[in-house]
C-alpha cells in the first residue's frame, strides 16, 4: 500500500483535540457553555458573549453544501491522482461551516443546499478526516 502523501493537519492545541475526536469518529465542535453558540475553527473564547467556558459537543453530522471549487490543477503532488476533485464548503445544522470533500458524488452534481452527512476517512493510523456524502433518503418509520 502506498504511503499517504497529502498534507495532514498539524493538530496542535485545540486543533489536536478536534482531530482526536475525529479519530474516534465523532464530529465535535466547541460550544459555549454560557450562551450556547457553536464555533469552528476552535478558539479560546466565545465571539458572541466572551465566555471562556466551552465544551466539545457532538454535532449531528448533517448539513448541506454551501459552496465549492472543482480543482483541476494540483498545487500539491499528493492530489494529482485525485484530479479533478472538489473542495467543498459544508454548512452543518449547528451553523458552523467547514471545508471537506463530498464522496460518492460527481463534481458536476454539486448544488447549493444539497443535503450531506458526515463519514470518517481514516487516512492514516493517526489521522481521520471528516468527509461527507449525500444524505441517504430518510425512511419514514412505520
Amino acid at each position: 500500500m502506498q504511503a499517504y502523501d497529502k498534507p495532514l493537519p498539524r493538530g496542535e492545541d485545540f486543533n489536536g483535540d478536534f482531530y482526536q475526536f475525529c479519530k474516534q469518529h465523532e464530529l465535535r465542535f466547541q460550544r459555549c457553555r454560557d450562551c450556547g453558540t457553536w464555533r469552528h475553527m476552535p478558539r479560546e473564547s466565545c465571539q458572541a458573549c466572551g465566555s471562556f467556558n466551552w465544551a466539545w459537543e457532538r454535532a449531528a453530522g448533517k448539513g448541506q453544501v454551501f459552496s465549492w471549487t472543482v480543482i483541476h490543477r494540483a498545487l500539491h503532488p499528493g492530489f494529482a491522482v485525485e484530479l479533478p476533485y472538489a473542495a467543498v464548503v459544508v454548512e452543518l445544522e449547528e451553523g458552523v461551516r467547514m471545508i471537506s470533500h463530498v464522496l460518492d458524488l460527481p463534481a458536476d452534481q454539486l448544488r447549493v443546499g444539497l443535503p450531506v452527512e458526515v463519514v470518517f476517512d481514516d487516512v492514516t493510523p493517526e489521522i481521520t478526516l471528516p468527509k461527507f456524502r449525500p444524505s441517504r433518503i430518510r425512511q419514514s418509520s412505520p
Binding site: P7, F18, M41, S67, T69, I71, H76, A87, I99
Partner: peptide, 20 residues
C-alpha cells in the same frame, strides 16, 4: 494547515473560488 490543506485547498485561487 489544519482545515483547508488536508482537503487540497492550498492556495488563494482555490479559496476565493468558494466565493465565486
Amino acid at each position: 494547515r489544519n482545515y483547508y490543506a488536508p482537503y487540497g485547498a492550498l492556495a488563494p485561487v482555490q479559496h476565493y473560488a468558494w466565493l465565486a
